[in-house]
Design a binder for these strands. Structure first.
Lengths: 120, 120
DNA sequence: CGGTGACCGCAACCATTTGTTGCGCAAACG
DNA sequence: CGTTTGCGCAACAAATGGTTGCGGTCACCG
């Protein structure tokens, strides 16, 4: 399961992550309503919404002259799964390294000759 | 546990994530050695290493004229934990929303009056 | 001991992204 | 029917991620 770079960089921006949080906690919003709770202008928010829409994390429905945005649960779940994947992969590597270090330590402590082990 | 934006954006870049992978799988490396396995120049890699070093994800030790970089396991574990946190928070919100939607559905299906529930 | 090559840092430059301000337009509302 | 209000578009500024080019040491070899 390789990482989707576009999706990842979409959620990589701190402002966009806060926007997703707001959209989730309030069940939706417009560029204007979001910009009122963020330290950026409406136009900046609108650009971020374009980015999020391009990767499918949000969808807009026009209501009168307003454009209501809502989170796409499937895509966000996919994003969350990727975060978990990468984090787990790092954890696994770190654990392997830690275990290896302990083994070397133990071996060096007891006798003190061998060094024929190979890492992955 | 709030998210550390600097740490997050450090691991947000795809090139830097690949660099971390390489450093983990090979146990270390220099700007030159990394650039040979990446589609970017040595200078670009060097800049990324500065970023990673600034947030403490890697450390350099000078060996002769070479600068050997290695991953800091504690910081990477912290980063992995943050990924897991955010992913879990999103999952929780999505599940709550899904459960709420099902309840409304069920209630509307049976009788069709109450709507006194409050979300978070 | 002096030349050559490898590794590095620094600076200049380019493209993209992230933010701003300003403008104009169309829909809502009194 | 005029005025707000919400939105899109364009021009601009700053930061970021990339490049090329240059110069400086350190290591190695003849």
């Amino acid at each position: 399961m390789p990482v989707d770079d576009d999706l990842w960089s979409a959620i990589g921006d701190p402002t966009r992550r806060r926007m997703l949080d707001l959209l989730l906690s309030e069940g939706g919003g417009t560029a204007t309503s979001l910009s009122e709770r963020l330290p950026v202008t409406r136009q900046a928010v609108a650009k971020h919404l374009v980015v999020l829409d391009r990767v499918g994390l949000v969808h807009a429905t026009a209501i009168g002259r307003e454009r209501q945005f809502r989170v796409d649960p499937e895509q966000l779940a996919r994003a969350a799964a990727q975060l978990a994947d990468v984090g787990a992969a790092w954890d696994a590597r770190l654990h392997r390294i830690k275990r290896m270090a302990e083994q070397i330590q133990r071996r060096a402590h007891e006798n003190g000759q061998q060094s024929t082990e190979k890492e992955q």
